[in-house]
Deep mutational scan, measured.
Amino acid sequence: GSKLPPGWEKRMSRSSGRVYYFNHITNASQWERPSG
């Protein structure tokens, strides 16, 4: 298991139950796992 880039964390969408990734530094969110 590799770590996520700085700022990123795994989140669960309440509406759909899907996992997404959220960056608390930039407030960005995306479905794809961030690389870096």
Results as ranks from 00 to 15, higher is better:
residue 11 R to A: 05
residue 4 L to V: 04
residue 31 W to D: 08
residue 36 G to S: 12
residue 26 T to G: 01
residue 32 E to I: 05
residue 22 F to Q: 02
residue 7 G to Y: 06
residue 20 Y to K: 01
residue 8 W to V: 00
residue 2 S to N: 13
residue 13 S to T: 10
residue 6 P to H: 10
residue 15 S to C: 15
residue 11 R to Y: 07
residue 5 P to V: 02
residue 22 F to I: 06
residue 30 Q to M: 06
residue 25 I to G: 05
residue 26 T to V: 03
residue 5 P to Q: 03
residue 1 G to S: 12
residue 14 R to D: 10
residue 33 R to V: 13
residue 6 P to M: 09
residue 31 W to Q: 05
residue 28 A to R: 13
residue 8 W to I: 00
residue 18 R to A: 09
residue 21 Y to K: 00
residue 24 H to S: 14
residue 3 K to W: 12
residue 25 I to N: 08
residue 9 E to V: 12
residue 19 V to D: 09
residue 11 R to N: 03
residue 35 S to P: 12
residue 8 W to Q: 00
residue 2 S to L: 11
residue 28 A to D: 07
residue 33 R to L: 12
residue 25 I to F: 11
residue 9 E to C: 12
residue 1 G to P: 12
residue 26 T to R: 02
residue 9 E to A: 05
residue 36 G to I: 13
residue 23 N to F: 02
residue 13 S to P: 01
residue 4 L to F: 03
residue 28 A to N: 10
residue 11 R to E: 02
residue 35 S to N: 12
residue 8 W to F: 01
residue 29 S to G: 06
residue 32 E to V: 06
residue 17 G to S: 06
residue 20 Y to E: 06
residue 15 S to L: 09
residue 6 P to W: 11
residue 28 A to V: 15
residue 1 G to D: 15
residue 29 S to I: 15
residue 27 N to I: 04
residue 19 V to L: 07
residue 31 W to H: 06
residue 20 Y to I: 04
residue 28 A to F: 07
residue 29 S to Q: 09
residue 5 P to S: 03
residue 27 N to L: 14
residue 28 A to K: 15
residue 33 R to M: 11
residue 10 K to T: 10
residue 30 Q to W: 04
residue 1 G to E: 15
residue 32 E to A: 07
residue 22 F to M: 02
residue 19 V to H: 09
residue 25 I to A: 09
residue 25 I to M: 09
residue 20 Y to Q: 02
residue 6 P to Q: 08
residue 32 E to R: 05
residue 14 R to F: 06
residue 27 N to D: 04
residue 11 R to H: 07
residue 6 P to I: 08
residue 31 W to I: 08
residue 7 G to Q: 04
residue 1 G to F: 04
residue 10 K to A: 13
residue 16 S to I: 07
residue 24 H to L: 13
residue 22 F to D: 03
residue 14 R to L: 10
residue 2 S to F: 10
residue 23 N to Q: 02
residue 7 G to F: 07
residue 21 Y to N: 00
residue 24 H to P: 10
residue 10 K to R: 13
residue 34 P to L: 01
residue 33 R to T: 09
residue 7 G to I: 02
residue 27 N to H: 14
residue 34 P to G: 01
residue 18 R to T: 07
residue 26 T to F: 05
residue 10 K to I: 15
residue 28 A to E: 15
residue 32 E to H: 10
residue 15 S to K: 14
residue 1 G to M: 08
residue 31 W to K: 08
residue 26 T to I: 04
residue 26 T to E: 04
residue 30 Q to N: 03
residue 17 G to A: 05
residue 5 P to R: 02
residue 16 S to L: 10
residue 10 K to S: 09
residue 16 S to G: 09
residue 2 S to Q: 12
residue 5 P to A: 05
residue 26 T to A: 03
residue 25 I to Y: 11
residue 31 W to L: 09
residue 34 P to F: 01
residue 18 R to L: 10
residue 33 R to D: 12
residue 1 G to Q: 12
residue 16 S to H: 12
residue 33 R to P: 14
residue 12 M to S: 07
residue 5 P to E: 05
residue 16 S to D: 12
residue 18 R to H: 08
residue 6 P to L: 09
residue 5 P to D: 03
residue 29 S to L: 13
residue 19 V to F: 12
residue 17 G to T: 03
residue 27 N to Q: 12
residue 32 E to N: 06
residue 16 S to V: 07
residue 18 R to F: 07
residue 6 P to T: 08
residue 28 A to M: 15
residue 16 S to A: 09
residue 28 A to L: 14
residue 22 F to N: 01
residue 13 S to W: 06
residue 17 G to Q: 07
residue 15 S to V: 14
residue 22 F to G: 01
residue 25 I to L: 10
residue 28 A to G: 06
residue 10 K to V: 15
residue 33 R to G: 04
residue 20 Y to G: 01
residue 22 F to T: 03
residue 24 H to F: 14
residue 30 Q to E: 03
residue 15 S to Q: 11
residue 24 H to I: 15
residue 34 P to V: 01
residue 6 P to E: 11
residue 34 P to Q: 01
residue 8 W to A: 01
residue 32 E to Q: 10
residue 5 P to K: 02
residue 20 Y to D: 05
residue 11 R to M: 07
residue 31 W to V: 08
residue 23 N to I: 03
residue 7 G to T: 02
residue 14 R to K: 14
residue 20 Y to M: 01
residue 36 G to H: 11
residue 8 W to T: 01
residue 16 S to K: 08
residue 5 P to F: 02
residue 29 S to P: 03
residue 4 L to S: 03
residue 34 P to S: 01
residue 21 Y to V: 00
residue 9 E to G: 06
residue 31 W to G: 05
residue 20 Y to W: 06
residue 21 Y to A: 00
residue 3 K to V: 13
residue 20 Y to P: 02
residue 15 S to Y: 09
residue 32 E to T: 08
residue 6 P to R: 07
residue 3 K to N: 13
residue 17 G to Y: 03
residue 21 Y to E: 01
residue 9 E to F: 05
residue 15 S to H: 13
residue 19 V to M: 08
residue 2 S to I: 13
residue 13 S to L: 12
residue 14 R to S: 12
residue 5 P to T: 02
residue 30 Q to Y: 05
residue 12 M to F: 15
residue 14 R to A: 13
residue 12 M to R: 13
residue 34 P to I: 01
residue 15 S to R: 14
residue 30 Q to T: 03
residue 34 P to E: 02
residue 7 G to C: 09
residue 3 K to I: 10
residue 28 A to Y: 10
residue 24 H to A: 12
residue 7 G to S: 03
residue 33 R to F: 15
residue 28 A to Q: 15
residue 35 S to M: 12
residue 35 S to A: 11
residue 33 R to C: 09
residue 29 S to M: 15
residue 15 S to M: 08
residue 28 A to H: 14
residue 4 L to G: 03
residue 17 G to D: 07
residue 24 H to N: 13
residue 1 G to L: 09
residue 24 H to K: 12
residue 21 Y to Q: 00
residue 18 R to D: 08
residue 13 S to M: 11
residue 14 R to I: 12
residue 24 H to G: 07
residue 35 S to Q: 11
residue 18 R to P: 04
residue 36 G to C: 11
residue 27 N to P: 00
residue 3 K to L: 14
residue 2 S to E: 15
residue 16 S to Q: 09
residue 19 V to G: 03
residue 35 S to T: 14
residue 30 Q to P: 00
residue 9 E to L: 06
residue 18 R to E: 11
residue 34 P to N: 01
residue 9 E to W: 03
residue 34 P to M: 02
residue 12 M to Y: 15
residue 14 R to N: 10
residue 22 F to P: 05
residue 6 P to D: 10
residue 3 K to T: 14
residue 17 G to M: 06
residue 18 R to M: 08
residue 9 E to N: 05
residue 18 R to I: 09
residue 15 S to P: 09
residue 20 Y to S: 01
residue 10 K to N: 02
residue 5 P to W: 04
residue 17 G to R: 06
residue 31 W to E: 07
residue 30 Q to I: 03
residue 28 A to S: 11
residue 23 N to H: 04
residue 14 R to V: 12
residue 8 W to R: 00
residue 19 V to Q: 08
residue 26 T to S: 07
residue 8 W to E: 00
residue 13 S to E: 14
residue 23 N to C: 08
residue 3 K to S: 14
residue 23 N to M: 01
residue 4 L to A: 03
residue 19 V to I: 14
residue 10 K to M: 15
residue 4 L to Q: 02
residue 12 M to K: 11
residue 2 S to V: 11
residue 33 R to Y: 14
residue 19 V to N: 05
residue 36 G to M: 14
residue 12 M to N: 08
residue 19 V to R: 03
residue 36 G to K: 10
residue 33 R to K: 10
residue 18 R to Y: 07
residue 7 G to W: 05
residue 6 P to V: 09
residue 9 E to M: 06
residue 13 S to D: 15
residue 32 E to P: 07
residue 11 R to F: 04
residue 24 H to V: 15
residue 22 F to V: 06
residue 10 K to E: 14
residue 32 E to F: 06
residue 35 S to D: 13
residue 27 N to W: 05
residue 22 F to L: 03
residue 3 K to Q: 14
residue 21 Y to S: 00
residue 2 S to D: 15
residue 2 S to W: 09
residue 36 G to W: 14
residue 3 K to P: 14
residue 12 M to G: 03
residue 12 M to P: 05
residue 24 H to Q: 10
residue 16 S to R: 06
residue 1 G to N: 15
residue 21 Y to I: 00
residue 30 Q to H: 04
residue 28 A to I: 15
residue 20 Y to T: 00
residue 7 G to L: 02
residue 20 Y to H: 04
residue 4 L to R: 02
residue 8 W to S: 00
residue 1 G to T: 12
residue 1 G to H: 11
residue 16 S to N: 10
residue 31 W to A: 08
residue 35 S to Y: 11
